[in-house]
């Protein structure tokens, strides 16, 4: 935490290396936030880069508190800009494609060198099912789910990042979860085995 504050102070003085330390510390969370909201790797990378550039230029507006929340607010805005831009332009495929435009059967961008092929396949299938269901949500509802259920933030932080009242966060999150539940039910075969019978386990 001391390093974080020190890097922020040095970054405010114009030290780019100190800011890059912050980038290295948070880039994974920021990119994952962008990826889950936008659903496309290249666009998510662009939004992440824009978010860090914007964060460096607006660092003087940081007034303490959670630096992660402050960063996620910036990347959320960048994602919203990207979302609006994509709405005006031709549709980008939600399913990852290779350079020939063919749908990727295995999500190679999700591969973890340390896991077995079965585990990798399971992860990719789950990730794919979740992403498809997230993409079916409206932008504001998707944002709530990503912030609370994927990034693990509380309602107050989500309200702060999205500039919404607490009641709005509650209701949007509940409706988003209900929609996701119905959507994921259609992807039972893509879910890991332990989730296919979760209904029965939970009912018991």
């Amino acid at each position: 935490m001391i390093d974080l504050n020190e890097n922020i102070t040095r970054s405010l003085a114009g030290d780019l290396d100190a800011f890059n330390q912050l980038v290295l510390q948070f880039q994974s969370q920021v990119y994952n936030q962008a990826y889950r909201i936008i659903g496309e790797p290249d666009a998510a990378a662009d939004a992440t880069q824009e978010a860090f550039i914007s964060a460096y230029r607006k660092l003087h507006t940081y007034r303490g508190g959670s630096f992660k929340s402050w960063l996620l607010r910036i990347v959320s805005n960048a994602c919203y800009d990207e979302y609006r831009r994509r709405k005006r332009q031709p549709v980008v495929p939600l399913i990852p494609e290779n350079q020939q435009g063919e749908e990727l059967e295995t999500a190679s961008w999700l591969e973890d060198p340390g896991e077995s092929p079965e585990q990798s396949a399971e992860r990719s299938e789950l990730s794919r099912a979740i992403q498809i269901c997230l993409d079916r949500l409206e932008f504001d509802f998707r944002m709530m789910v990503v912030l609370v259920d994927i990034q693990g933030m509380d309602y107050a932080s989500a309200a702060d990042i999205t500039n919404n009242p607490l009641g709005t966060v509650k209701s949007r999150l509940a409706r988003a979860r209900k929609s996701l539940q119905e959507c994921l039910r259609g992807f039972q075969e893509l879910l890991p085995g332990r989730f296919r019978h979760l209904d029965e386990v939970a009912t018991e």
């Binding site: 780019l16 800011f19 890059n20 980038v23 290295l24 880039q27 994974s28 920021v30 990119y31 994952n32 990826y35 889950r36 790797p41 990378a45 992440t48 880069q49 860090f52 550039i53 460096y56 961008w109 999700l110 591969e111 973890d112 992860r123 990719s124 789950l126 990730s127 979740i130 789910v145 259920d149 994927i150 693990g152 509940a174 979860r177 209900k178 996701l180 539940q181 994921l184 879910l191 890991p192 989730f195 979760l198 209904d199 939970a202 009912t203």
Partner: peptide
């Protein structure tokens, strides 16, 4: 039953794999 369904959905979402970053975003 509804509570259990929400709990299950929340569990699945919490297991969402973290995707690897395609590159460093240092400035």
């Amino acid at each position: 039953a509804a509570l259990n369904e929400i709990k299950r959905t929340k569990q699945i979402l919490s297991l969402t794999p973290r995707v690897g970053i395609p590159r460093n975003f240092t400035l």
